[in-house]
Design a protein around this nucleic acid. Sequence first.
DNA 1: CGCTATTTGTGCGTATGTATC
DNA 2: GGATACATACGCACAAATAGC
Lengths: 256, 256
Amino acid sequence: MNARSPSTPVASQLQYVLVAQRLMQDITSGRYPVGSLLPTEFNLCTQFGVSRHTVREAIRRLQERGLVTRRRGIGTSVKANRVDTRYVQTSMAISDLPRYVEETRLVIAQTEDVIADAPLAELLQCPPGQRWIRVTGLRYAGREKLPMALSHIYINAAYGGIRKRIGTIKVPVYTLIERQYGITIVAVEQEIRAGIIGAADARRLSVKPGSAGLVVSRRYCGDSDSTIEVAVNLHPADRFSYSMSMRLQAATGSDA
Amino acid sequence: MNARSPSTPVASQLQYVLVAQRLMQDITSGRYPVGSLLPTEFNLCTQFGVSRHTVREAIRRLQERGLVTRRRGIGTSVKANRVDTRYVQTSMAISDLPRYVEETRLVIAQTEDVIADAPLAELLQCPPGQRWIRVTGLRYAGREKLPMALSHIYINAAYGGIRKRIGTIKVPVYTLIERQYGITIVAVEQEIRAGIIGAADARRLSVKPGSAGLVVSRRYCGDSDSTIEVAVNLHPADRFSYSMSMRLQAATGSDA
DNA sequence: CGCTATTTGTGCGTATGTATC
DNA sequence: GGATACATACGCACAAATAGC
């Protein structure tokens, strides 16, 4: 179709893209060194023969990539001469830690004391023989009839005081612990894997035995990596998916 | 939890910030639920008594925060109703994705042109009928004999120039595109779900048909949410789990 | 100190292009 | 083809921050 050389980028007919590309070239080539000022917007307008709106849209792209900063009354200064993916911080919004709990309700089926045997100690990352409380229940989303998950929540026996409050209010268990014992969850480790739902769990979840499920295990850590709570949720495959998005964080122009 | 209380004084007199705040409130409050469409730009103009330019600037802020996506001819749809949580992912950011690829090798089985039908267009978030390139292959970790994933990579036909280079070097496909076409991946959306591995896929992965698998779909977005690449990986449940850790971060809260 | 010129930031109006239904 | 809705692009005016006189 078009005999363009393989290394040539597709030509965009968009004015502001063209201007942005030209400026990026001029920055990477060293025509506008790091620390120097770009020509003024008005200057670029006449230079490229486009409106100020277009120039600003082009510079906005440079700014989003962390190449320049703009300061009112000063101008647009070059901050970097290449898009550096190493230090570009990716902030991500996890869709559901608090929201997940707020919009679902946990119906508790069972609460029992357990002593951590070897495999459980592995999961909880605690020495074997420790006492824990295991809460088992079904989690429902909104007014859905079918449960979205079968939950097993393990609580360190040291925080057993919250036992009676679980399920009574729409607050995550770890928040209950944080409030009552004045501690803070410092980190969360999460593992997601797939699994087959066995006969017993399938009956509780109202799915066919042998169907696929998503197992989400979360470990809530306090100071010095101590395990405060571990939640294991088994989701039927067709009732839950885990999604998240990561965005490039635009460098804030403030050179604080 | 930095929800703005109604009594909080509004520090900014900027029109587009005010409009953006109002819209964010209406999204988080559920007036505009996730999946619904925002009023049209023209509609918002009359509603807030501002110009379209201002409305667009406000919506741009929502877009930068990952709250909405805009599609020409359709409208502005709500993607999420919460800007941020207390937790920020530390272990697996965009910067770590390249490493994942470097430590694995992709053996390509097939490369073909496809036209996006309705379901594929949904996955790729593109209009139906568009041309894409689909690369199918098996991904191996280290020197393992058994593949860790069956990969389907969809590449926008506009970036077909990288076709021959895939698999030849240990670099992610999206990096190839970024380099050759001078564009930047601005966001990544990821979805994880469970599924049953069918007969054909099971044979390629050397697993028993009907066993469980983890499906990880990643969508790499360029500017204005355009889809540049989509990668769908099907992992046998016993060969892969997705883990990450989040550490508490001081609430950003900075709306500035 | 105030004043002015410069430069980016905000905001308005309008027109046209393009994708979707 | 027409209606709708976002995308691009032009123009203009004024505000706010800065630097220099």
